[in-house]
Design a protein around this nucleic acid. Structure first.
Length: 194
DNA sequence: ATCTCGATTGGCT
DNA sequence: GCCAATCGAGATG
């Protein structure tokens, strides 16, 4: 009998953004819907800071979108870029801006449903990008500003104990990046974006 | 009211 | 590799 996986608790997110980004690798994101459950293993993330980070939405201070980054850790932040929803989770203590963008998942459950939603057959084209995975799991923009622990249908849980190597790089798609490498991924995975 | 611009994706050369 | 579609926000008038 398999032990039921425990959801991550809010305090998991109340620490340095970079640490959260790294530690989210290997965790399982699951979304239950009327059509059925879909889930994937997090294999790629990016950390975004506050005012000092030119690539962050928070770089210009609080706006309708960015204000969520000052909210309680484990708050969900979703916004639209180029017509796609991007899924982030707020980090750091309340009042200090920070968030982690989930950039790619390895599909683990509900793969047929994901294929249908994405209109793609290739398993490597289901969750291999921040806009793709929100489509594949059907994560709605309405979750923005909600707390992860209060959205019953969305679960972020411990993954398996298997070991992996963490790779780093500069963030993708940003016009002005920090010198620090803030993209993290599971080395060797075939489900990464790009 | 209108314009510009992305933390993107997909199709085509 | 290049480029157009996409749509909501933010800026400007």
């Amino acid at each position: 009998m398999r032990k039921k996986r425990e959801p991550l608790i809010p305090s998991f997110f109340q620490r340095k953004t970079k640490t959260v980004a790294k530690r989210l690798l290997g965790k399982i994101l699951l979304h239950r819907t009327e059509k059925g459950p879909t889930a994937g293993k997090i294999i790629e993330t990016e950390a975004y800071y506050g005012q000092e980070d030119p690539a962050s939405r928070a770089s210009q201070g609080k706006t309708k979108i960015s204000q969520t980054m000052w909210d309680k850790p484990s708050t969900i932040l979703i916004y639209v870029v180029h017509g796609y929803c991007l899924f982030n989770i707020v980090t750091e203590e309340k009042g200090k801006p920070g968030a982690v963008l989930i950039r790619a998942l390895e599909p683990v459950r509900g793969i047929e449903l994901m294929k249908k939603r994405r209109g793609k057959k290739d398993i490597h084209d289901l969750c291999s990008g921040p806009g793709k995975l929100t489509q594949a799991l059907d994560i709605p923009k309405a979750y923005n500003n909600c707390n992860l622990s209060e959205v019953e249908d969305l679960l972020l849980t411990q993954g398996t104990d298997e070991e992996f190597e963490v790779g780093t790089s500069h963030r993708i798609g940003v016009s002005e990046d920090l010198p620090e490498e803030l993209r993290f991924y599971i080395k060797g995975s075939s489900f990464l974006s790009r």
